[in-house]
């Protein structure tokens, strides 16, 4: 990552204005041309340095008050197949393979689901279960009871 890419990432992470010409304002603040900004952003998006540009809704304000971290013990041989099917569900916001820590932590697959009620979130977890039950030995969910810290990534 070069200096200009780093400056752009920091600025984009801090936030864009909701205005007629958001990129023009960002470019002005960084003292570069809008053309250079757009070209660099496009490159960073393609290389994966920037995952996405857009807004993050306040899920809680919109009514998605339940955030359920579902964790699954998936047979190692099936993990990719399960990951792809669960990742395609439109109610799953993140899903990752992570290491087990036996004996305390047998779960190797995480999928985050959101719901407007506990029942709705649980129903979504059951939908995942139906989809992958042949590959899954056990699963559980960890409801969040309190956000203790939430900040954007700092670099």
């Amino acid at each position: 990552m070069n200096t200009i890419e780093k400056k752009i990432i920091e600025k984009m992470q801090a936030g864009m204005p909701i205005s007629e010409k958001p990129y023009e304002e960002i470019a002005e603040a960084l003292n570069i041309s809008q053309t250079q900004l757009l070209r660099t952003l496009d490159g960073m998006k393609k290389s994966g340095l920037i995952r996405r540009i857009g807004l993050v809704p306040n899920h809680y304000a919109i009514g998605y008050t339940v955030n359920l971290m579902t964790v699954w013990d998936i047979k190692d041989s099936d993990i990719d197949q399960v990951g792809v099917s669960v990742g395609a569900l439109d109610f799953v916001s993140h899903c990752y393979q992570r290491p087990r820590h036996l004996p305390d932590w047998p779960y190797n697959f995480f999928a985050m689901v959101h719901g407007k009620s506990e029942a709705e979130a649980n129903d979504k977890m059951q939908q995942i279960n139906l989809l992958i039950k042949d590959s899954c030995r056990q699963f559980t969910s960890l409801k969040s009871t309190k956000i203790l810290k939430k900040t954007g990534l700092r670099i």
Partner: peptide, 23 residues
Amino acid sequence: LALLEQAGFIARFGGVNNHKKMG
């Protein structure tokens, strides 16, 4: 959209970085 942001329906608007590529 600006009104929705003021009313708190938007957590943030900007870039979402790829943590894995950041460190």
